[in-house]
Design a protein around this nucleic acid. Sequence first.
DNA 1: TCCACCTGTATCGCATGCTATGGATGCTGC
DNA 2: GCAGCATCCATAGCATGCGATACAGGTGGA
Lengths: 151, 151
Amino acid sequence: MVSFPNDPRRASAGYMTNWAARLFARAIDRRLAPHGLSSGHMPVFFALAGGTTMTQKELALSAAIEQPTMAATLTRMERDGLIAREPDPDDRRKSLIRLTPAAEAKAATVMAAAAEVNALALSGLQPAERARFLADLERVVAALDDRPRAG
Amino acid sequence: MVSFPNDPRRASAGYMTNWAARLFARAIDRRLAPHGLSSGHMPVFFALAGGTTMTQKELALSAAIEQPTMAATLTRMERDGLIAREPDPDDRRKSLIRLTPAAEAKAATVMAAAAEVNALALSGLQPAERARFLADLERVVAALDDRPRAG
DNA sequence: TCCACCTGTATCGCATGCTATGGATGCTGC
DNA sequence: GCAGCATCCATAGCATGCGATACAGGTGGA
């Protein structure tokens, strides 16, 4: 149920987007918490699942978050035995980050939770509308993102 | 510019919504920071501008956030001289919250920032597409929100 | 070589969001 | 009246996100 049918906030894309994002995160967290995982781990799993290694900067770029945010997430994931860092032999500033075997074993669970929540979220839209909605989100991101990113 | 044209994350509504929400918040924060305000203050301003008083619970419901989150936001806003709490004479559990005159004087700035960021975010969409996008966001919220709310 | 600059990471301080819990107050049924 | 329940708020503990800054290591030109 949506609250306050006449609320002017309903006409604000920023408010509705923020609300939707919090609901996404809660839905993900509820599914992943029993496995000791949370929504913030997801971009790391998507980037590294299958044995890929990346530097912290590459992970931050891939998740479109700032470097200190990714550093904190990786610190927690390392504490919880989900990732390991090894020094890059070619550049002592860098660490190469990979999922631990324990995390690799949970990767399918993470992917399934993402798919399930996405399907639930879009269940009120027809397939063509879903693609359109994603395309609209991309245009919104493009309009607000002032940082040029490599393709 | 959107990164990673072939990235499977681009097909995830949850990822794109989270990204868009962070970009919205950053855009708002950059405009409001010079005035000592931030994105978290916005739902309080929208609810109370014009002299309205509300309890903390009503504010949390109006913003669709949990009560402890609203409590923390109000603590900071009180610290910064933006709101004042007065005891409800009819129910000693409640406080009635209102904007201070200093905050009322900034309300127009908050509304202008919201309008400007919304306009920027939707600048890549035609007017009809904007309404459609907002309607889609409402359906996503309705699909994910498991808490019934009064209309 | 060495200095100046660039890059990658760590760290601080803070805001915003959540769940879980507890305490004070109000209400209802007996 | 009061015992039990409901409601409102405060607080603890944590995760996720930001900007600002410090510093180690790499790089390139004089």
